Simulated assay, not measured.
Amino acid sequence: MTITHQDELDGLKAIGRIVANTLKGMGRALEPGMTTAELDEIGREMLETAGARSAPQSVYDFPGATCISVNEEIAHGVPGSRVISAGDLVNIDVSASKDGFFSDTGATFRVPPLRPAQERLCRDGKRATQIGIAQVGSGKPLAGIGNAVGRFAAQHGYTLIRNLASHGIGRSLHEYPEEIATWPTRQDKRRIEKGMVLTVEPFLSRGGLWASEGADGWTLYSEPRAPAVQYEHTVVATDKRAIILTLPG
């Protein structure tokens, strides 16, 4: 989607705030001993209270209101009976729609006690996302996002999952520009337009290169097996900088 009117920006800001608040609320509620289904129910109630619809459910018939991925699961984890334990890495991905506008956000949470390697990976995962967002501006190359994230990853000894891309969003969950690489690429010659709405969501890993589908047909795992984190925002390109839509408030 490319924004052309203020009411479109207002609608996107509204749903962006809803998914951000839902993610924040789920992160605060996260504790050892709860199941991923219980955590998902908190997200479901928050979205419904705000008048929003879960995008994975409404668009893809996903068996959960949110995606919750634990440890070896890196994305699209199905909420269920899995019990969250101390020391786990838990990725929560929240996407939803309201009044015809979609937004998407996510973060990886650490369940204490924390190990130094986990803390570094999460800290640098956040940095990678911010580096990617800094490349979003009208007239800039879309490939600049992945190239900048790739330089950061290489400098700090990380790998990137190379088949989970960022994407356009706005009037639907996934739309043009599709398959925005968050890893280095020379093939993509597309440019960012003023008002373009997209996600920035690199998957930073300590050895993982690809995402492979599990037996349930939804959950994704890193190949080779390795820890991975993801932090995601929905942003709008302007002449000066990116507007981050998915901030709580």
Rank of each mutant, 00 (worst) to 15 (best):
M1L: 13
E45V: 12
I15Q: 06
L245G: 04
I3C: 04
C122E: 12
G139Q: 07
T2G: 08
L23D: 00
G170P: 05
R190S: 04
L220Q: 09
I192W: 00
W218P: 07
A242K: 13
G249K: 12
T219S: 10
A226V: 05
P112F: 00
V235I: 03
E179V: 15
Q6N: 08
Q135A: 15
E213P: 02
D88W: 05
Y176F: 09
F152I: 07
A154N: 12
A75P: 00
P224T: 08
Y176P: 12
N147V: 06
S222L: 01
A148I: 13
H156G: 06
G77E: 00
G77S: 00
A107H: 10
T182D: 13
N21I: 07
T36D: 00
D88H: 03
V149E: 03
H5W: 06
D93L: 15
G217L: 08
I3L: 10
T199D: 00
E73N: 04
E193K: 15
G64R: 09
R53V: 03
V229R: 01
F109R: 05
V70K: 13
N21W: 02
D239P: 02
L12R: 07
T246Q: 10
T246R: 02
R206H: 11
L142R: 10
I84T: 04
A165C: 14
M196F: 10
N147G: 04
I133P: 11
N71G: 08
L164A: 01
T185Y: 03
W183L: 09
R206Q: 15
A128M: 06
D40G: 10
K194A: 15
A50M: 07
L47D: 07
A20N: 07
Q57V: 13
A134T: 10
A226M: 03
A153M: 08
N71P: 09
R127Y: 12
G43Q: 02
V59Y: 11
T66L: 13
K126P: 11
P202C: 00
V136P: 03
P224E: 00
V229Q: 05
D88E: 07
G168L: 02
M26F: 04
F102Q: 05
I133H: 13
P56Y: 06
R82N: 00
P248A: 01
L89C: 06
N21H: 07
F62R: 01
D216M: 06
G208T: 04
S103P: 05
Q6M: 14
Y158F: 10
L89N: 03
F102D: 00
N91C: 06
I84A: 01
I68A: 02
K140W: 13
I169T: 15
D104A: 04
D88F: 03
W218L: 08
Q130F: 12
S205E: 03
L12D: 02
E193I: 07
P248H: 06
L204K: 00
G16L: 04
R151A: 15
H167P: 01
I131L: 10
A50K: 07
E48T: 14
L30H: 04
G87F: 01
A226I: 02
E73D: 12
L47P: 06
I169W: 03
V90M: 02
G27A: 07
I145E: 00
P63Y: 03
G16I: 09
A134Y: 05
P141C: 11
I145C: 00
I42C: 01
Q135R: 15
E31W: 14
P248C: 04
D10K: 13
K189Y: 15
C122W: 09
L160Q: 11
E45Y: 09
A128R: 09
D99Y: 09
F62Q: 04
P224N: 01
R151S: 14
